[in-house]
Design a protein around this nucleic acid. Structure first.
Lengths: 233, 233
DNA sequence: TAGATTGTTAATCGATTAACAATC
DNA sequence: TAGATTGTTAATCGATTAACAATC
């Protein structure tokens, strides 16, 4: 199989299809599937039916099968999905088969906790460095790197190239941090500051805001229970 | 105003309507509006049109107005929204006008960073305590409280009552931590462990997973740019 | 009044779910 | 073959967007 077909779409179109046309809602569930499958592989499982992978991932079986169909279906009717090939497909689709380097901007409590987070490197993201403007913090070692001054950001990002930045600075400093990172070529930002970052459309931003999450929980906790009966979430 | 009306829906139904019938997608945006409005109030603004509140919140103006209409509309045609009353409405809707106590389970790097996070208390959530099983950590002070043993969780949650827990333990310990918290009456869980928690329908779980976010960024960063032209996100 | 801006409707868009023919 | 399970269709559901009459 060459991936080239004489009828239908153009070949290059075909090649990019798998990574291109996946809805955001689907993409956001793929890491969860990958996580569960990795655990299954470690436990020695070779195949798994959609029904079981679905419950372990916290989604419905129809949703799961439809999601996986977006990647080019790897299942076998009557059997289920083969764990290892599906892991490979997911990793390939998510772009995890190449090294990713991440820079952390902000070495406060949160930035340092993130630097020390083992899941970071466990899943293929390597820490390029961490920067701050606080003279007291600079020089300290954390997560295998030394905290450097924000002025050194250009060096850190350039060599070898990093394309992702984690912003863990106070709200007022976040936009400036984003601007600097973007100017240096960063195209993906994980933002922990409670502000809406203004970025060009070519840059992807994911926001994680702890107080937002707590407030959403407060909303639900403040509700009377939806019903006397337990509902399936 | 008594909130009781002789026509239309039953009075108790009316009273609960505002907090009940709000779609999840809307609820998830309310904290963002509240944040922006709080900044505006601090800057001395008295009113704001939907168009401006929308851009500052990163949503479309139609979405914003429709969202706010769910709370019972507080806008004035030709003028906009009054900042202070809208803040009050949002706080009331989210249930932020009562004290919320939060327990952190897990005093590793992340748990301690969360305990020290000022935004926690700034927005009305007070730290009831933080627990761990590691003898070396117990007794240490962080974020104004002393790390205690997980065996003391019952005391911490009971007096005065806490209804929210933050889970910041390793994946393998997360379900147990959730079970314990739920048994003690917790109804809202903010889960940082990369596992799907199994909880009754009466308990609300919000998941925050750092590697998931990075993987989603990797997917987008691995994509060729969507278009030559910049798109409005 | 004239200008501005809301609240709401209707249309569009996208995501989820159920069901079942295809097929291992 | 008989049983199991996928891939896919069609139906449902919910969320977003555009447009404009209502009204300050």
């Amino acid at each position: 199989m060459t991936g080239i077909e004489s009828s239908g779409r153009l070949p290059w179109r075909k090649a990019t299809l798998a990574r291109r046309d996946i809805p955001d809602a689907v993409v956001s569930r793929l890491p969860g599937y990958l996580q569960v499958l990795t655990d299954l592989a470690a436990a020695g499982e070779r195949t798994i039916p959609s029904a079981e992978l679905a419950v372990r991932s916290g989604v419905g079986p129809a949703t799961l099968r439809k999601d996986l169909a977006h990647l080019g279906s790897t299942g076998t009717r009557g059997v289920g999905y083969q764990v290892d090939p599906l892991i490979a497909t997911l990793r390939d689709c998510l772009g995890l088969n190449r090294p990713w380097r991440v820079v952390i901007i902000g070495a406060g409590h949160l930035g340092r906790a993130l630097a020390a987070y083992p899941g970071f490197t466990e899943r293929g993201f390597s820490l390029a460095g961490i920067v701050d403007v606080d003279a007291a913090a600079i020089g300290t070692r954390v997560g295998g790197v030394t905290i450097r001054h924000t002025d050194d950001l250009a060096e850190l990002i350039a060599d070898p190239p990093s394309t992702m930045a984690v912003i863990a600075v106070p709200a007022l400093a976040a936009q400036r941090a984003a601007d600097q990172a973007i100017a240096l070529g960063v195209t993906g930002i994980l933002n922990f500051a409670p502000v809406v970052l203004n970025v060009p459309a070519s840059v992807e931003v994911r926001n994680v805001d702890l107080s937002t999450e707590l407030q959403i929980l407060a909303f639900h906790a403040g509700q009377p229970p939806a019903d006397e009966h337990q509902e399936v979430s």
